[in-house]
């Protein structure tokens, strides 16, 4: 649990974490979010529409990345905004799991506004899966 102050410097790495994704988590996210697109649980359907197999919900990848930041901050209200582009699918094998690495780095600091941009890079085996993954947080 951390509070960011206006003294934080651009380029500072805040943390590097790994989040694993399994089929179990896809089913859990489908239920929690109401997104029951079969490409997220049915291999036959996913293959028929040209995917390598079942893929994670883009919004699950985004949600996992967002949660690393809000868990790291003291107060979830310090998250002002978070946006991403979905650039690459995340295939989830069965059996097995995939490990997503989330690296949070201070992108810019605006001391007058009292905000900072935090870049949440999400990679799968070294390859980025989200583009322009940028959060804005309130500084104290």
């Amino acid at each position: 649990m951390t509070t960011l102050t206006t003294a934080v410097e651009k380029g500072t790495e805040l943390y590097l974490l790994t989040r694993t994704v399994t089929r179990d988590r896809l089913v859990r996210y489908a239920g929690a979010s109401g997104d029951f697109n079969p490409i997220h649980y049915n291999d036959r359907f996913a293959t028929e529409v040209g995917l390598p197999g079942v893929i994670a919900h883009g919004m699950l990848t985004m949600g996992l990345a967002c949660a690393t930041l809000t868990d790291w901050l003291d107060d979830p209200a310090d998250l002002i905004s978070y946006g991403v582009r979905f650039t690459r699918p995340v295939p989830v094998p069965d059996p097995g799991e995939v490990a997503l690495e989330v690296r949070a780095v201070v992108g810019t600091v605006d001391p007058e506004a009292g905000t900072a941009r935090i870049d949440l890079a999400v990679t799968l085996e070294g390859t980025s899966v989200l583009g322009k993954s940028q959060a804005h947080v309130r500084l104290h």
Binding site: R19, R28, G31, A32, S33, L60, G63, L64, A67, T68
Partner: peptide
């Protein structure tokens, strides 16, 4: 209930 379910799904572990 729905907030707790969603938090578990995205791995958000903060007590809030």
């Amino acid at each position: 209930a729905k907030i707790a379910e969603f938090a578990a799904a995205v791995g958000a572990e903060a007590a809030v």
